[in-house]
């Protein structure tokens, strides 16, 4: 059975697109045929993060309107032949996406793909609503910062009341917490909410912590999902997340600060 995963947060700039690109690539690299869809109509960016911006011919809205077939619009990833990208349209028409149209496309994708990753736009408007409506699993991307945590909680409320599963009284969407831009040294100084703090407030299952990392910008600069940078901390964090999602037991990493020479000499452990 295919699973539809929504990557959402409410707040913008927390790392939804980075996460969507990384986990879609991770799932595909693990041998699962995966499609990743950009729901941010008017502000498409997933293509840029995936490095396929010059290969976009047709988009999501073209398929909904019947101007192109799904196969014409899907872009095969250059790094992994099990990964396909469905780019968002750059139209300014807010009503370009319809619930019926999105449902049809997802049903068609479900026949052929194992995982369908929906990259939600920020906010709680139509695009965000449609990205989460058909989801089976939700990855809530949160930064350890007050506004992001609050918005994540708001999103949880919407997932549990406005989704298809909620409306049809089915088993609720499985919700997972992905804490990104985490800085253990700042947590230790009491300047940043800790993983435990955020988990306690949101009471969510933690899928993984992604440390604040230079490699994320480097990856987006070059249009390569950060998970392919296997040496980087963020890349490894996403690889762990994919493994945990697939049911593997992996101890959490990147929660404690890295000790430099100074820390090793003077540190307590």
């Amino acid at each position: 059975m295919a699973r539809v995963i929504v990557v959402t947060s409410g707040k913008g700039g927390v790392g939804k697109t980075t996460t969507s690109a990384a986990i879609a690539m991770g799932l595909a690299k693990r041998g699962h045929k995966t499609a990743v869809i950009d729901f941010d109509v008017g502000l498409r960016n997933l293509d840029l993060i995936m490095g396929c911006e010059r290969r976009v011919v047709y988009d999501f809205v073209n398929v909904i309107n019947g101007e192109a077939s799904l196969n014409q619009a899907l872009i095969r990833d250059k790094n992994c032949n099990l990964l396909y990208i469905l780019p968002a349209s750059q139209t300014r028409d807010k009503d370009a996406l319809s619930q019926e149209g999105v449902g049809k496309i997802l049903d068609e994708l479900k026949k052929d793909f194992k995982y369908i990753v929906c990259d939600s736009p920020a906010g709680i408007e139509k695009g965000a609503h449609l990205a989460m409506y058909f989801a089976d699993d939700a990855f809530i991307v949160t930064n350890p910062e007050v506004s992001s945590v609050r918005d994540s909680d708001r999103m949880l409320g919407i997932l549990s009341s406005k989704s298809r599963r909620a409306e049809q009284n089915e088993e609720p969407i499985k919700e997972y917490l992905l804490l990104s831009r985490y800085a253990p040294d700042r947590v230790k100084l009491g300047e940043m909410l800790s993983v435990n703090d955020v988990q306690e407030i949101l009471s969510l299952h933690l899928l993984g912590v992604i440390p604040e990392s230079k490699s994320v910008l480097t990856a987006s600069n070059s249009g390569v999902p950060v998970i392919l940078d296997e040496k980087s901390d963020a890349g490894q964090a996403y690889a762990d997340i994919v493994a945990r999602y697939l049911g593997e037991e992996k101890p959490h990493r990147f929660i404690d600060e890295k000790k430099g020479l100074f820390g090793k000499l003077f540190g307590s452990k």
Partner: peptide, 29 residues
């Protein structure tokens, strides 16, 4: 650790953030 002696002890901003969020989230829920 030796360094711990030099740390200034005061209520951290993170614990303030946690407290504010807990109240707010409970109310909104």
């Amino acid at each position: 650790s030796l360094l711990d002696y030099f740390k200034i002890s005061k209520a951290s901003s993170a614990s303030l953030a946690k407290e504010r969020l807990q109240i707010l989230v409970a109310h909104e829920r």
